[in-house]
Computed example of a mutant assay.
Amino acid sequence: MKKLGHLGVYTSLVFLSVYLPELGIMYLTKFLGWGIDGYSIISLVGELVLVVLFVFWLKKKKMLYIFEKKGSKKSRFFYLMVGLVATYSIRQLVDAYQLQFHHLIDNKYIFQDLLSVLYSNGQPTFLSTVLSFSLTVVVAPISEELIDRGYFMNTFFPQSKYYLDVILSALIFGLGHLILTHRDPISLIIFSFAGLFYALVYRWTKNLKITILCHSFFNFLIYAKPIWIFVYNYIYYHFFR
């Protein structure tokens, strides 16, 4: 029962740590009269601050062992390569599923009215694109894996023979992504499935860095096609025309 109580507190804190900072960032950006570029700057800085504070908190809790390297260099390299290949396959599966049920997905952002004000203050530029890429591909995977795998799976039912640590981590990861947008069953399935994959990677490799890299690669694949099109067009129009 004590574990369940702690789990409830943890879930509430996850909800608040997503909802309140985002709301604060939106109002701060609006107060400053900034547009999307300003919002992107504050979001990235805020996320970095949260990561640093969480690492200091882990140090206080004497949980920095989650960063310890597991296995030999060869085994880590092997696990990483297998993990990246599996990540690519999972990404393709998720994209196909998402495309098939796209009409059932709710993309409405919870603070849409505030976001509209920010867009009226300033449209996104190349700067906000770079910052959004950095947040999605680098910072967010680090913070999410620190919390949902590194901390959670080593605190609640660690190494459970029934894989409760994996299942609950996946579910909380899925629910956490429905706080601001995508509040529909299809999105819950998609995000929970991705969370299940990351949790299994961490459970099997016992290496948080490998898990973070897989998560980062998964998110990078969102940008892979647009980046390839941009590079191809740039090379073609500047060197072959």
Rank of each mutant, 00 (worst) to 15 (best):
M1E: 08
H6G: 15
G8F: 06
G8I: 03
G8Y: 12
Y10L: 14
Y10P: 02
L13P: 07
V14Q: 10
L16A: 15
L16V: 13
L16P: 02
L20R: 00
L20V: 15
L20M: 13
P21C: 06
K30C: 02
F31M: 13
F31H: 13
G35I: 02
D37H: 09
G38Y: 11
G38F: 14
Y39M: 12
S43L: 11
V45A: 14
G46H: 04
G46V: 06
L50D: 00
V55D: 06
V55R: 02
W57T: 04
W57E: 04
K59R: 15
K59W: 11
K61W: 00
L64H: 08
Y65K: 13
F67G: 08
F67M: 10
E68I: 01
E68K: 15
K69C: 02
K69L: 14
K69G: 06
K70E: 15
S72H: 10
S72E: 05
K73F: 13
K74V: 09
R76I: 04
F77C: 05
F77P: 00
L80A: 13
G83I: 06
L84K: 10
T87W: 05
S89W: 07
Q98N: 13
L99S: 15
H102P: 00
L104C: 01
I105P: 02
I105W: 01
I105S: 02
N107D: 06
F111E: 04
Q112H: 05
Q112A: 11
D113F: 09
L114P: 00
L114I: 07
L115H: 09
L115I: 02
V117P: 00
L118M: 10
L118S: 01
G122Q: 01
G122H: 04
F126Y: 04
F126V: 08
V130A: 11
L131H: 05
S132D: 12
S132I: 05
V138E: 00
V139S: 01
A140I: 02
L146C: 07
D148Q: 04
G150F: 03
M153V: 08
N154R: 04
T155F: 04
F157N: 07
F157I: 00
Y162K: 15
Y162P: 01
Y163C: 07
D165M: 05
L168F: 12
L171Q: 00
G174T: 10
G176Y: 00
G176D: 07
L180C: 03
T181R: 01
R183C: 04
R183M: 12
R183Q: 14
D184H: 02
P185I: 05
I186C: 09
S187C: 11
L188N: 02
L188R: 04
I189C: 09
I190C: 09
I190V: 15
I190Q: 04
L200E: 03
Y202M: 05
R203P: 05
W204V: 03
T205Y: 05
N207C: 07
L208A: 10
K209W: 14
I210G: 06
I210M: 03
T211M: 09
I212N: 06
I212D: 02
F217A: 10
F220Y: 15
I222C: 00
Y223F: 15
A224D: 03
K225N: 11
I229N: 10
I229T: 10
F230V: 11
F230A: 14
Y232R: 11
N233S: 12
Y234S: 07
Y234T: 14
Y236T: 10
Y236D: 13
Y236V: 10
Y237L: 09
F240G: 01
